[in-house]
Amino acid sequence: MTPLLELRNVSKHFGHAYALEGVNMSIRPGEVLSLLGDNGAGKSTLVKVVAGVHQPDEGEVYVRGERVSHWNPAKAREQRIETVFQDKALAAQQPVTSNVFLGREITNRFGFVKHRAQRQEADRLMRGMRFTSKVLSPDSPVQHLSGGEREGVAIARAVHFNADLIVLDEPTTALSLRQAQEVLDFVRRVRDDGTSVLFISHNMFHAHEVADRIVILDRGRVGMEADQATMSATELIELMQSTARGDAHA
């Protein structure tokens, strides 16, 4: 199967310090790939490379089997790759609908925003994501949403723009157990609908729960890659520890 996205020998350095070095990683259509690593492992830099924020200093980016030159955020979006960063880029005082279409509003031929069409689409997306709150509506201000629901709005935004790959950067950080479970449920739903997800986390239990495959990043390099079905969460923790000690080999 041709990977949806592939990084080949990608390196990124800042001055004399390498944040990524010789990274080879692929994401297949319709799978969840969990990317794990300690602080400083290079996860944030890799997210920005995939999103097009950083161009690799070395190596190549392939999308659907074709090399893409001069990789940037516009090209990532053209290739239907949407990234939800840790801050989620949500306007807390604005309603759900406005946040779904923030910066990419539905307009008529005269440039006026089609508010009714946006609200109807936001309602459809929320139903598809199966938001659990009975009082939540497209008109609900984001500041009234739980952390898990805010992540869901950001994911719904990516779904609306026909993402083939959604990159989630630490989506369960600082969430309660219930809210984190909501996010994990959202991830499974979009995967079941055929969308690929790159799930970046330092929480090994969350990463293991939703993953089809797991990649461990260690000091800018791929330390280990494995199918989720081949190991338990406990074994994953032991693997992370051995990788950090340098016992495991890529």
Score class of each variant (00 low, 15 high):
104 R>V: 09
103 G>L: 07
115 H>N: 12
117 A>E: 03
128 G>R: 05
129 M>W: 04
103 G>K: 08
123 D>I: 03
117 A>Q: 09
121 E>L: 08
111 G>H: 13
138 P>A: 04
107 T>G: 01
125 L>W: 06
127 R>L: 07
107 T>L: 12
135 V>Q: 11
128 G>H: 01
140 S>M: 10
133 S>G: 14
129 M>C: 04
125 L>R: 00
123 D>K: 02
140 S>C: 01
122 A>F: 00
128 G>F: 03
132 T>S: 15
122 A>P: 05
107 T>I: 13
132 T>E: 15
107 T>M: 09
140 S>L: 07
134 K>V: 11
134 K>W: 05
120 Q>P: 02
129 M>Q: 04
121 E>G: 02
124 R>V: 00
105 E>D: 11
126 M>N: 01
115 H>C: 06
105 E>A: 04
131 F>Y: 04
106 I>V: 14
103 G>T: 07
114 K>I: 11
110 F>D: 09
135 V>M: 07
125 L>H: 01
127 R>Y: 08
115 H>K: 15
120 Q>E: 15
120 Q>V: 03
140 S>N: 02
117 A>L: 04
130 R>H: 14
110 F>R: 14
118 Q>V: 06
139 D>G: 11
137 S>P: 02
103 G>E: 13
104 R>C: 10
132 T>H: 14
131 F>S: 02
115 H>P: 00
108 N>F: 13
135 V>D: 13
117 A>I: 05
139 D>V: 05
125 L>Y: 00
107 T>D: 10
119 R>T: 02
106 I>T: 05
106 I>A: 02
122 A>S: 11
116 R>P: 02
119 R>H: 10
110 F>E: 15
123 D>C: 06
128 G>Y: 00
128 G>C: 00
112 F>Y: 14
132 T>K: 07
135 V>R: 12
121 E>P: 02
106 I>Q: 06
120 Q>H: 09
136 L>A: 05
140 S>G: 04
129 M>P: 00
128 G>W: 03
137 S>R: 10
109 R>E: 10
131 F>W: 04
105 E>F: 03
111 G>L: 07
132 T>F: 06
130 R>P: 01
136 L>R: 04
124 R>K: 14
117 A>K: 03
129 M>N: 04
114 K>D: 12
118 Q>Y: 11
109 R>G: 06
130 R>V: 05
110 F>T: 14
124 R>T: 13
135 V>S: 12
136 L>D: 05
106 I>L: 12
137 S>A: 08
122 A>L: 08
108 N>V: 10
138 P>E: 09
113 V>Q: 10
135 V>Y: 11
104 R>Q: 15
121 E>W: 02
121 E>Y: 05
118 Q>C: 02
121 E>T: 03
115 H>A: 15
122 A>R: 00
116 R>M: 10
113 V>S: 11
139 D>S: 09
127 R>S: 11
111 G>Y: 10
125 L>N: 00
109 R>Q: 11
106 I>W: 06
116 R>L: 12
122 A>G: 01
113 V>N: 09
110 F>P: 09
130 R>Y: 09
114 K>W: 10
120 Q>S: 10
139 D>W: 11
131 F>T: 05
140 S>K: 00
110 F>S: 12
113 V>L: 15
115 H>Q: 15
137 S>G: 08
139 D>M: 12
134 K>R: 15
129 M>T: 05
125 L>E: 04
103 G>M: 10
112 F>N: 06
136 L>W: 11
107 T>P: 05
111 G>D: 14
122 A>E: 01
122 A>C: 03
